[in-house]
């Protein structure tokens, strides 16, 4: 090192300390790349696939019933003679949207309550955590069955009930993360400035737990996709003749030996979606684990 090197940087920047943004780390890992590629592909397919459908998804008898692949019907037809490919291309939206909305709702409610409890501590925290614990003791499917049996099924009900299942799980995680952050003096500094609770949670706490929150979001979305697909499969969600993938799997499985694609294609769609989110969640988690060790998590 020459003298000039010593003199030049008034504030020497430790390049090691400079954090890499999350998206870059995600792109740098093999699972992140695969996850993003598959995820993008599935997103395009779900959003625009319907415009390329050769037939109307719900039109009966566009071909012979329950048939394997042919020149007119690339993936065959189902038991009512509908085109499997057209149904697949049109039926992905709710398999992604319902889980997405329910996880967002779970984060708003559960995350909000968890952060509030973790910050406030005391009695409010006790009530919140006990409520979470109570919800956690109930089997997820039981909650959904009871609610849907009671008030019937619709997209909104599905979103809310699925969210109810995720609220305590998300809440507990964010509460724990918040507890670790509130012991820092910058929270005390904000309190001494007289900042309001909401401002402290949003400005001081949230940015510091955002990394784990986002990883949890991606992971929770994976569960949600499978969970909602399961509900549809069980007939608790979308009703016929909706081309919903979960429902398609349920309808097609009786004839799987004759027209395998009527079951396999939507099943593969669900699998690809959940695997993609899972891979992205893994890459994010790895990013956080590495940068937490260095103390410079950035998103």
């Amino acid at each position: 090192m020459t003298t000039a090197d010593v003199l030049a940087p008034v504030v020497p920047v430790d390049e090691e300390a400079r954090a890499t943004p999350a998206w870059r780390t995600v792109l740098n890992t093999i699972e992140g790349r695969i996850g993003l590629a598959v995820g993008a592909l599935m997103l395009l397919l779900i959003a625009f696939g319907r415009f390329f459908a050769p037939y109307s998804p719900n039109e009966l008898g566009v071909g012979p019933r329950t048939q394997g692949p042919s020149a007119e019907h690339v993936f065959g037809t189902d038991s009512l003679g509908r085109d499997v490919l057209s149904r697949f291309l049109s039926g992905g939206d709710m398999i992604l949207l319902v889980p997405l909305l329910s996880v967002v709702l779970a984060f708003l409610v559960g995350g909000g309550l968890g952060m509030f409890g973790g910050y406030r501590r005391g009695r409010a925290d006790l009530v919140i955590t006990r409520t979470f614990d109570l919800l956690l003791t109930l089997p997820p499917l039981l909650i959904v069955l009871v609610i849907i049996a009671g008030i019937g099924s619709s997209t909104a009900v599905l979103v809310v009930t699925a969210a109810l299942v995720f609220v305590p799980r998300v809440g507990r995680l964010l509460r724990g993360a918040t507890q670790a952050v509130v012991t820092n003096d910058y929270v005390a500094a904000a309190q001494a400035r007289g900042e309001r609770t909401a401002a402290i949670i949003l400005r001081e706490v949230l940015p510091n737990i955002a990394a784990s929150a986002i990883a949890e979001f991606a992971l929770r979305l994976t569960y949600a996709i499978i969970f909602v697909a399961t509900l549809n499969f069980l007939g608790l969600g979308a009703q016929p003749p909706n081309p919903n993938w979960g429902l398609m799997v349920a309808e097609g499985r009786t004839y799987i030996a004759i027209s395998p694609w009527a079951t396999l294609l939507p099943a593969a769609g669900i699998a690809a979606l959940s695997i993609a989110t899972n891979l992205i969640a893994d890459a994010l988690t790895r990013h956080i684990a590495r940068d937490t060790a260095r103390g410079t998590v950035t998103l």
Binding site: N184, D185, Y186, A192, R203, P207, N208
Partner: peptide, 13 residues
């Protein structure tokens, strides 16, 4: 107030 540990009193974000 100024705290003992600037590590903890400055929000890293």
């Amino acid at each position: 107030i100024v705290f003992q540990n600037a590590e903890s009193s400055l929000n890293p974000r």
